[in-house]
């Protein structure tokens, strides 16, 4: 564990807390893509199946359970409790366009052809693009509430900090996992445009509005 990874995990937890708090406080999930949240739930479920087969640390297991639990809770809020506020007309990204390529890619580009390993690989590929329905929704409506922007910034920072962690681990431990690194870079690059808008608009107390 190094400082980058700790910061990354904390940013990830912060993102989840911001999202749950926003939905709960406003009693609404307007502006939130349920499809991205379905993809994230799928990511955690596929990746953290190993909670039953391999033990890394108390920290790891606790975080895995936390991510599984909170993603389930988020889906419950969007698709059950506050379903009337769910903006499904604007959440029109076809997730099959992400699921199918990720599934095929994980069958061909993996570290080992075993069930758990392929599911892990699939989750890594899927996570890298899981935010696209949400970004698509922001692009479609042309705006995002500040709180949604904070959520996206925290969530984007998490994988960017993991990239720093991987650079550190490569130097300090000669450890690297090419699949995670490339997918992490793709994931971070997808947020770049948003990061730019966040820094130039939201941090100046302006609403995130895209040019028409």
């Amino acid at each position: 564990m190094n400082i980058f990874r700790l910061m990354a995990d904390l940013a990830h937890v912060l993102a989840i807390v911001i999202l749950l708090h926003k939905i709960w406080k406003s009693r609404s999930c307007a502006g939130i893509s349920g499809k991205s949240q379905i993809l994230f739930a799928l990511v955690y479920f596929m990746r953290y199946l190993d909670i039953m087969t391999s033990y890394v640390s108390f920290y790891n297991s606790t975080m895995k359970l936390l991510f599984l639990g909170t993603s389930g809770a988020t889906l419950n809020l969007i698709y059950r409790k506050f379903k009337p506020s769910y903006d499904h007309n604007h959440d029109s990204f076809r997730i099959a366009y992400l699921l199918v390529p990720c599934a095929l890619l994980s069958l061909f580009l993996n570290h080992e052809f075993s069930v758990l390993e392929i599911l892990w690989t699939f989750s890594i590929y899927l996570e890298s693009v899981a935010i696209l329905p949400q970004l698509f929704m922001v692009a479609k409506t042309g705006e995002a509430e500040s709180i949604t922007s904070h959520y996206l910034f925290a969530l984007g920072s998490y994988r960017a900090l993991y990239v720093c962690n991987w650079v550190y681990r490569y130097i300090a431990e000669s450890h690297f996992d090419l699949i995670a690194i490339i997918a992490g870079l793709v994931q971070t690059i997808l947020y770049c445009d948003f990061f730019y808008l966040y820094i130039t608009k939201v941090l100046q107390n302006r609403k995130l509005q895209l040019p028409a």
Partner: peptide
């Protein structure tokens, strides 16, 4: 050094 398919990160 760990085998590559031991995933110790989240």
């Amino acid at each position: 050094q760990q085998a590559e398919n031991v995933h110790d990160e989240l």
